[in-house]
Simulated scan of single mutants.
Amino acid sequence: MISVKNVLTVLGVAFTAYFAARGLLWTGRPIPQPLIIVISVGIYLAVTWLCIFWQPASQRSSPVPRAAGSADNESLESLEAQAAPHAAGEGIRGPLPLPVTAQVLALACAVIVPNAIPIAVGETARTASFATWYLGGIGALMTIVMVRRRPWTAWAGIVLLTIASFLWMGPLNALALGLVGSIVWVTCAQLLVFSMDRAARDTSRLTRLQRAATGWQTSQVVRQRERRVQVQRALAVAGPVLTRTVAHAGVLTEDDRLEARIAEGRLRDEMRGPRLLDDEVRAELERARRRGANVTVLDEGGLDDVDDETLGIIRAQLAETLRSASSDRLYIRTSPDERVAVTVVGRSPSVGGPSDEDSVDLWREIPHPGRA
């Protein structure tokens, strides 16, 4: 598979091999220390290719966590605030940072090779093409180090190369024979890595914003559907009562008034405690109201994190409690307690006649299933 990384790797190997080959082309000329040249070229290739290919498993990037859209977002204005903390640490792609050992070897190569080659070729051949290859070769090595996200090491290597080349061939010769090109390569590599990282961070941030926006939009669609369902349910409950009220010009019989109160109670239940309701609970609430009980249902958020299976168990226990209740007033509320899911309180007038101080004749705490 052809990728940008593979292409850059091939180019890096090809360029470094080219510089190494230049260093071996001294055919026909007497060289004082040819073995030193061969060893220097070998060291250069080994270190350079190590810097290209060494990627320890411990430094491999972990997959970027997917940002799920939250249904609790209130507006699009909060999306950028949600994405900003994550975008700062993510979005970096490309070559991994070079390990410390490889950095040390690269600096050692920047010291050894530029000093060994001038010694090996002798004073008369220090400006020959086969003796100046290290100017471009070390520059290519430091470019690789820069691409591997070690700028301080790369510039330290360039400084070492500059000092050695100035000492062995003079500033003018060093600048004319390739030192300027090496400095330009490292500079361009640093600018390229900086631009690439910035583009990757922006892309990651925009991706997170898009995901958050999609989640927000989805939550709004869900809420719209819930509102439509509630409106349809309200019409189904209150529609017949309103129709009869209009048809009789507001003059209702006792049965009609009872149906109106029951319809009002149903609507309040649907708005205040929808997660407490199923068909069985609704039937028991209606039965309690038809016998004259005043029922209040209130969900204050205690069941938001409860799954459907657990919610079914809680609803079944609530229906059983309502089935056996005979209180005149029933208060059904979710509980903030970690162990208690729903509290049912029943109150009836005290013995001896009506009184504001009703006695509590029912107290039931429905626990969360599976919680101590």
Score class of each variant (00 low, 15 high):
2 I>H: 12
6 N>F: 09
13 V>A: 10
13 V>G: 01
15 F>R: 09
16 T>M: 09
18 Y>R: 07
19 F>Y: 15
23 G>L: 07
24 L>T: 15
27 T>E: 15
30 P>N: 15
31 I>V: 15
33 Q>I: 05
39 I>G: 00
49 W>C: 12
50 L>M: 13
52 I>E: 02
53 F>P: 03
54 W>S: 02
55 Q>S: 14
56 P>R: 07
59 Q>N: 07
61 S>Y: 07
72 D>W: 14
72 D>E: 14
73 N>L: 13
73 N>W: 13
74 E>F: 05
75 S>K: 11
76 L>C: 01
78 S>L: 08
80 E>W: 06
81 A>W: 14
81 A>S: 13
87 A>W: 13
91 G>S: 04
92 I>Q: 13
93 R>F: 06
94 G>Y: 02
97 P>W: 14
99 P>Y: 06
101 T>P: 00
109 C>L: 07
110 A>M: 04
115 N>S: 04
119 I>Q: 09
127 T>Y: 10
128 A>F: 01
129 S>P: 04
131 A>M: 02
144 I>A: 11
144 I>P: 03
144 I>Q: 13
145 V>H: 12
147 V>T: 13
147 V>S: 12
149 R>M: 11
151 P>Y: 02
154 A>D: 04
155 W>I: 12
158 I>H: 04
159 V>N: 06
170 G>V: 12
170 G>Y: 14
175 L>I: 07
177 L>C: 04
178 G>L: 05
187 T>K: 01
190 Q>K: 08
201 R>T: 10
201 R>Q: 13
208 R>A: 02
211 R>I: 01
211 R>D: 11
233 R>W: 11
235 L>D: 07
236 A>L: 08
237 V>A: 06
239 G>N: 04
239 G>Y: 03
243 T>V: 05
246 V>H: 02
247 A>P: 00
247 A>M: 01
259 E>F: 00
268 R>H: 07
269 D>W: 09
272 R>T: 02
275 R>K: 04
279 D>N: 07
285 L>M: 08
289 R>E: 08
290 R>D: 03
300 E>P: 08
302 G>Q: 00
305 D>L: 14
314 I>V: 14
316 A>R: 15
321 T>Y: 02
321 T>K: 06
325 A>Y: 15
327 S>N: 07
331 Y>D: 14
333 R>T: 13
333 R>G: 09
335 S>Y: 09
335 S>G: 08
338 E>W: 11
339 R>F: 12
342 V>N: 07
357 E>D: 15
359 S>N: 09
360 V>N: 08
362 L>W: 03
363 W>Q: 07
